[in-house]
Design a protein around this nucleic acid. Structure first.
Length: 566
RNA sequence: GCGCCUGUAGCUCAGUGGAUAGAGCGUCGGCCUCCGGAGCCGAAGGUCGCAGGUUCGAAUCCUGUCGGGCGCGCCA
């Protein structure tokens, strides 16, 4: 992204500013009374009308002002529309607006000018890579922690949603003008790792697997790979044998997890172990910080954080009566460690089963002097994985699970990414694996990819015919087929802006589908390659190329490939 | 019992207080002498769980209620 690209306001933003000027002008001229000093600042909302006859953009500002002004919304709308029209007439290049109309009960409908649409297309062609990215109004440095599965076994399909949602969230935030660090938190020591080690040791030495051990096939493979040196070290360590083998196994498992994530197209900037938070002193210092603030007390031999001060329903133990820190203590230390790296905001992508810990972590952050609003948890609802109508229950311990790798071998990364990106993270969803496989060729993702590939084919054929895209659509945009497609294309920055603000990705998939539909309609109505009409062909090729860049950039936000052919 | 999430077309799901609630799949009916038919056009299909309330306007906000999911450890 270059400054020239990012500095361009969206068409929507330009429209909002024009409305603000018109409102101010209407007040100056006495048509409308001044805004009272005590009133909350008016936020002008502009949206895409559902119906094309309502224009390209619409604002409800007159409806909002009706109550404080005690005036009919239509009158207010007309007063603002008059000023908007005056500006458009005096200088048609001042705004992207070509015409204004007022509709009951008080909407102001705006129509974009062909010149504005053409200008955007020209910018896309001049700089396709940065197209769609926007400058954040308040850029933040954001830490996004996701997946964070402990290395006790391979990633399962239970981890799929968090991995994809977290990854797409990062891409969206970056495109929205923020800087993002992707972070994976894990515990490679402790009781569960010890049990994993004990399991592997038992298999390797021909003993039965412990009751509370891990029964998946992968432990067999790990046992076979266990180096003799580690085995010898374990034997020499006596009671800690499980921990020694577990430590080695955790490393091996993590390597496998990284490979799986790589296959998904998910990459992390930081891998942080829970143990390091202790050895580096973060937990200890965080507890001291809470203690200094008077937020800690000792009872029954344990050390408690007074979480109720901040609205929690009970206080929380941070040091057990044995002196051992709890998992929550690590969380607290981690908060300080993350903020020490200069982040403005921490986002945790958690399974919804962790919602009970949200309040205490935010409370601790507040108690240590951080803004609790800067600590945000995105709770991902569970996915019911269903095979032949029967839910598959996952247990790493019991060894009954489907790995992420298996799922993606069957369903495909692009289809799986689309499936999760197109659904709200907070809503529980069913994933029928058989159905997903069966319908994969009819998955909406292929509809979008097909549009991209079709454009690639057109551009190839045009090149063979000696036709190259023009620098812009020019006067050809006055055609209705061109204008309709252009109206979809130019929305990308607004879609990204909204997605980044909402920290959601569904809008991207919806937009990509609508753009693909718009392209297919254009393809039906407008013949692109027409050697006898080279100028019009070149203009249409420009528009088609802009559509292709837009599709490619939208798909890239989702981590989905944009094929040249399929 | 308390807390968080959730209930929208036959199925799977979109829908940041706005105009006639949408998409994909499925069903039914049309469209290839022409740039890719993984496409296009059309039809059927909805008391937005239910009942109140706020608002000029509610699928959206509030209250209650019914159903589903998940939590409520000196586990992680």
């Amino acid at each position: 992204m270059t400054p020239s690209q990012s500095a361009q306001p969206t068409l929507r933003r330009a429209a909002i500013e024009a409305i603000e000027r018109a409102l101010a002008a209407a007040i100056r001229s006495g048509f409308l009374p001044p805004v009272a000093a005590g009133d909350a600042p008016l936020v002008i909302e502009v949206q895409r009308p559902a119906k094309p006859e309502h224009g390209d953009l619409a604002t409800n500002v007159a409806l909002k002002l009706a109550r404080p002004y005690r005036r009919a919304p239509l009158e207010i709308a007309q007063a603002i529309a008059v000023e908007l029209s005056r500006e458009v007439e005096e200088d048609p290049t001042a705004t992207p607006i070509a015409s204004i109309s007022v509709a009951p009960p008080g909407f102001i409908n705006l129509h974009l000018s062909d010149a504005a649409l053409d200008g955007v297309v020209a910018r896309i062609l001049a700089e396709p890579a940065g197209w769609g990215r926007v400058a954040a109004r308040r850029p933040r440095r954001i830490n996004v922690e996701f997946v964070s599965a402990n290395p006790t076994g391979p990633l399962t399909i239970g981890n799929a949603r968090g991995a994809f949602v977290g990854d797409v969230l990062c891409r969206v935030l970056e495109a929205g003008g923020h800087s993002v660090a992707r972070e994976y938190y894990f515990n490679d020591s402790g009781a569960q790792i010890g049990k994993l080690g004990a399991t592997i040791l038992a298999i390797r030495t021909g003993q039965p697997i412990p009751e509370d051990g891990y029964h998946g096939d992968y432990t067999q493979a790990l046992a076979a790979e266990l180096p003799d040196a580690v085995l010898a070290e374990a034997a020499a360590s006596g009671a800690d044998a499980g921990a020694v083998v577990g430590s080695w196994a955790a490393g091996a498992v993590r390597t496998g997890i990284e490979a799986s994530l790589d296959h998904l197209g998910v990459h992390f900037d930081v891998w942080k172990s829970e143990g390091s938070l202790h050895t580096e002193g973060w937990v200890e210092r965080a507890i001291e910080r809470l203690r200094a603030g008077g937020h800690v007390y000792v009872q029954d031999g344990a050390t408690w954080f007074r979480s109720t001060t901040f609205g929690d329903d009970k206080d929380r133990v941070i040091l057990r009566s044995t002196g051992e820190p709890t998992y929550f203590a690590s969380d607290i230390g981690y908060v300080t460690e993350k903020f020490s790296r200069g982040f403005d905001e921490l986002i945790y992508v958690w399974g919804s089963d962790h919602h009970g810990t949200v309040a205490r972590v935010r409370n601790a952050a507040e108690a240590m002097g951080y803004d609790r609003e800067a600590v945000r948890m995105l709770l991902i609802a569970w996915v019911r994985f269903v095979v032949d109508g029967v839910e598959v229950s996952m247990s790493k311990r019991a060894g009954t699970f489907i790995t992420l790798d298996q799922l993606l071998d069957e369903v495909g990364v692009d289809a799986a990414r689309w499936f999760f990106a197109s659904r709200a993270p907070t809503s529980g969803i069913d994933f029928d694996i058989e159905l997903a496989k069966k319908q994969s060729s009819e998955n909406p993702v292929y509809y979008v990819q097909y549009a991209h590939a079709r454009i690639a084919s057109i551009l190839r054929r045009a090149g063979e015919a000696g036709l190259e895209p023009a620098d812009s659509v020019g006067s050809a945009i006055e055609g209705s087929a061109e204008a309709r497609l252009a109206r979809e294309i130019v929305r990308l920055p607004e879609v990204i802006e909204d997605a980044a603000a909402l920290e959601e990705a569904q809008g991207i998939t919806a937009f990509a589908t609508e753009l693909a539909t718009a392209f297919h309609a254009f393809y039906r109505d407008a013949k692109v390659i027409e050697p006898t009409e080279p100028e019009r062909s070149r203009a249409r090729l420009a528009l088609v190329a802009a559509a292709q860049h837009t599709l490619a950039n939208a798909l890239a936000l989702l981590g989905i490939s944009a094929p040249e052919s399929m």
